[in-house]
Design a protein around this nucleic acid. Structure first.
Length: 304
DNA sequence: CATCCGTGGAC
DNA sequence: TGTCCAAGGAT
């Protein structure tokens, strides 16, 4: 038996419990009112939001999310339509392969899961476009299960509050997974709320650029704060160059296809980029990815 | 495990 | 103004 004071938490379990209460209380008072968090949001709606939120900010997702679910309220509705329609509906959210994968996931759900988004983590992970994060997020948010949900926000909160550094490493480490697992509340329902609460804290307060430490509920116990908020030291954090890349050319090509609503002749595509070699490489890449379908010599369209 | 994959907004 | 970065996944 360990002697513990009745007033001060002494065990790790008690410390964690205090941490959970602090963050969850903050969440209850400060959470954004997002449509995929409402009680009537279906597991499919949660899954759609998670796909769209992969590397795209909430503000830009909101209108696309509403339009998507209005058109395809269930996985079967989406699966019944052409993949090209998903790509078109995706609009300018970026990374359009996500649209293709969401369509493929909807097809798999329809064919292999009776049209219902699976609640099992392994089954979710097996779906196209669903990785470690998204599987945990859907299982946690939609089905209130107990999973470590480790996204960029949570990783940053842990880096600061637990490790005492400004930014996490580039790639997720085993130590981070261990931290996320250890801090997970025992009760599934509490764990699910904790997961979304820590994410929200990272998104609203413990932000990448200019964290609002003054308004942070973890200010007193944050390791980074206690250390005097030392600046990041380490290898330069990679900047994403975009201008002149194949990604930019792909984007321009696909924009023409999206807006065309039908077949597009080569000449229309040739207008978007001056370098014929890079243009051809980008178009080949789009075809290889299944985002574009050749229908004849010099004629293309979105996949049907 | 590093790299590729869009787009736009904030500073 | 250019840099940074935003609920990642696949290879």
């Amino acid at each position: 038996m360990v002697a513990t004071s009745p007033s001060a938490p002494a065990t790790a379990s008690q410390l964690h419990s205090t941490l959970h209460t602090t963050v969850i209380d903050w969440y209850e008072a400060n959470a954004r009112d997002l449509p995929w968090r409402t009680p009537d949001a279906s597991p499919w709606a949660v899954m759609v939001s998670e796909f769209m939120l992969q590397q795209t900010p909430v503000k830009r997702v909101l209108p696309a999310y509403a339009a998507w679910l209005e058109r395809w309220p269930t996985p079967a509705d989406l699966a019944a339509d052409a993949p090209g329609e998903a790509v078109r509906m995706w609009g300018r959210l970026g990374y359009p392969r996500r649209a293709l994968r969401l369509h493929a996931a909807a097809t798999a759900i329809t064919e292999d899961h009776g049209g219902e988004v699976p609640s099992d983590h392994a089954a979710l992970l097996a779906l196209p476009g669903v990785g470690e994060y998204t599987a945990a997020a859907v299982a946690s948010f939609a089905f209130r299960q107990r999973h470590a949900v480790l996204d960029t926000n949570v990783r940053r909160v842990f880096a600061r509050a637990v490790t005492g550094v400004e930014y996490p490493a580039q790639a997720t480490t085993a130590a981070e997974r261990r931290t996320a697992t250890e801090l997970l509340p025992a009760r599934a329902e509490t764990a699910a709320t904790w997961a979304v609460a820590v994410m929200e804290l990272g998104a609203l307060v413990c932000t990448a650029r200019s964290p609002e430490c003054a308004g942070c509920p973890l200010r007193a116990e944050c390791a980074w704060q206690r250390a005097g908020r030392p600046p990041y030291v380490g290898p330069a954090r990679r900047g994403q160059t975009y201008e002149g890349t194949d990604r930019q050319v792909r984007g321009k090509l696909l924009a023409v296809l999206r807006d065309a609503h039908g077949e597009v002749a080569q000449a229309r595509l040739d207008e978007v980029w001056h370098d014929a070699v890079q243009r051809a490489r980008a178009l080949d890449g789009l075809v290889a990815d299944g985002l574009v379908e050749p229908v004849g010599p010099g004629v293309y369209r979105l996949p049907q």
